[in-house]
Design a protein around this nucleic acid. Structure first.
Length: 383
DNA sequence: GTTGAGCGTT
């Protein structure tokens, strides 16, 4: 009601168009589609977290986040089919645009061997591009490494490349991420409740693959009866929320992954900042549609920057930077061993069984997958 | 048994 029109654009760099809302404050998908043929939904960047969020869509009606469209510019979602070609263009131009003026930021390097020095880090990361800063964090009293550090590159392009893959540094697999990015609500990640102890990360991954590309599976240790599954596409994740699924004969419940408890600041790089601040809580999209994987688009680029290995791993692979990714976890075993069931790694291979209907065909990419720790057998699961 | 590791002495 307070807003007669909302602003909608093809992507964040395009000029927005005003779309009329209905008397009750909702916007009809058909109104959006009238201006953007083929549109199947909207998303927007949350000014607080800089993360993308989907707009709730039910039976052709789009609902304002927090009951207020605010002054944001909403981005059109397209279904998979229209996508392929478009997205290649999008991805290409996104990279081009970013190359120009994206600032780099410090990256945290997690999982370093105790013995790794700043010189080691510099030597290693210089193979990706010009390094302007490295640090190894140490205990001030003992001088011992804390097992993590920071690195910063001159070029944003290098930063993207480095975040997109795992790194073998002095014999250990390390992850590079944007610092404190964990608190960002991740609408690509779902919480899987009522898991049983015999569900392995690899099995969950195989099961959820049928809905779309899975970029990460996390199972806390010790066993706590839940897990997290991250998809490349947030629409896949959101569509699954609220579902009860049968995995290995057990009913598990899917819901939104809450942000990790953490005080964080977010880097606001470039994005436009709309008005009114938002608070917590995000609308869940239960539209059940669009369960297919998509190509590479700016949203996924953004997502990959934030966290996942899957998407950008593909880029890395294309550049011949394949790392035998998928060493079961980043668990530290320098002083003691405490295997985590988590693993992150693009793609999968060498798993002989697959759940019944596997619709996910990762078009053209087949990133390598090192050791899939669990041998796992059995195949007769329900869906 | 339904919400995840570790995040920077400037």
């Amino acid at each position: 009601m307070p807003y007669l029109y909302i602003r909608v654009a093809e992507d964040e760099n395009e000029e927005p168009m005003e779309i009329p809302s209905e008397d009750d404050g909702t916007v009809l998908l058909s109104s959006v589609a009238a201006q953007f043929p083929g549109a199947c939904g909207l998303r927007y960047r949350n000014p607080e977290t800089q993360c993308l969020r989907g707009v709730r869509l039910l039976e052709g009606v789009l609902y304002a986040p927090e009951n207020d469209w605010g002054n944001l510019v909403y981005i059109v979602n397209y279904p998979k089919d229209n996508k392929r070609k478009m997205e290649e263009i999008d991805a290409a131009s996104a990279v081009k645009v970013k190359r120009g003026f994206q600032k780099t930021s410090d990256l945290i390097v997690l999982g370093l061997p105790w013995k790794t020095t700043e010189q080691d880090l510099k030597d290693y990361f210089s193979t990706f591009g010009e390094v302007i800063m490295v640090q190894v964090k140490r205990d001030l009293k003992t001088g011992n490494s804390k097992g993590f550090g920071f690195v910063r590159f001159t070029d944003y392009e290098t930063q993207i490349k480095v975040i997109a893959q795992r790194h073998l540094i002095d014999g250990r697999w390390c992850d590079c991420k944007l610092p404190n990015s964990k608190a960002c609500p991740d609408d690509r990640k779902v919480f899987v409740g009522r898991c049983t102890e015999d569900m392995t990360a690899e099995e969950l991954r195989q099961y959820f693959m049928q809905y779309g590309e899975v970029t990460d599976v996390f199972i806390p240790k010790p066993f706590r009866a839940f897990a997290f599954v991250t998809f490349a596409d947030h629409q896949v994740a959101q569509a699954l929320c609220g579902e009860d699924l049968i995995i290995k004969g057990v009913s598990v419940h899917i819901s939104n992954a809450e942000p990790k408890h953490n005080n964080s600041r977010q880097m606001t790089e470039g994005g436009q900042s709309g008005a009114g601040g938002f608070s917590q809580g995000y609308g869940s999209n239960r539209s059940g549609a669009n369960l297919a994987g998509m190509g590479l688009n700016p949203a996924m680029v953004a997502a990959a920057l934030q966290r996942s290995w899957g998407v950008m791993g593909m880029l890395a692979n294309q550049q011949g930077l394949t790392t035998a990714a998928g060493t079961a976890s980043t668990t530290r075993d320098q002083t003691f061993s405490s295997a985590s069931t988590s693993y992150s790694g693009p793609g999968s291979a060498g798993v002989s069984w697959v759940p019944g209907t596997n619709a996910a065909s990762s078009g053209g990419f087949s990133p390598g997958f090192g050791n899939s720790a669990e041998p796992s057998k059995s195949s007769n699961w329900g869906i």
